[in-house]
Amino acid sequence: MTAAAPLISLRSVSRTYRTEGVAVAAVRNVSFDIAQGEIVAVMGPSGSGKSTLMNMIGLLDLPSEGAVYLQGADVADLTEDRRSSLRARSIGFVFQSYNLLARHDAIENVALPLVYCGIARKERLARAEASLEAVGMLHRAHHFPRQLSGGEQQRVAIARALIASPLIVLADEPTGALDSRTGAEILSLFAALNRTGQTIVMITHDPGIAAQCRRTIHLHDGELVGDETQAPALPKRSAVS
């Protein structure tokens, strides 16, 4: 693998769902790269294929056609177990509905990905504390999700996404369930993370939020219809496309 290989690379990726004989092309022939350290907003109307795309980048799903490369390696060549391990170590998911385990407290939720990295409980909890601290939620470590506000739950979810120091954080409408002020706080948390070098891809409906990301990808009916990068600071990107 050369140093030039982008973190994520999509080449002519299509994803077609077949239900009862009807084929729905959720993503069609999409190609783009994401480099280390970028923050990318993905926009598009409902049903345009944003989540489908995100699932493929997050190794939860495979393209029907084309290929997704993670650090130059075709993810379709990996075993299901290997993709799972990569999800634990290299991908951090943040969902619109937080997806915390209701029956575990905040710190246990944050530590969860490390269970699947084979890390011992003591170290898991120590790292979960550090991760909660980083999102300003350490004081809620032993609260259960139902005892937390939406914004607090989303911070815990972000702490969980960050705990294994992933290559990339994938957030599917992370502010979708929050009021605009809380949403803005979450957004500035992402911005701060990105300033430390964290690669982030974020689905959003809110043009205001997208405007704060340097790069925005637009989807429409499964097709890539726009890929804009704002001035001033152009992120380093691979020249190959």
């Binding site: 939860l60 177990d81 799972s84 391990s85 999800r87 991908i91 997806n99 699947y116």
Partner: peptide, 16 residues
């Protein structure tokens, strides 16, 4: 089911 989905997304293998 949802817990299973979350665990899988966070890196749980089928065998886990």
């Amino acid at each position: 089911t949802r817990e299973i989905g979350i665990r899988r997304a966070l890196g749980g293998r089928m065998r886990d």
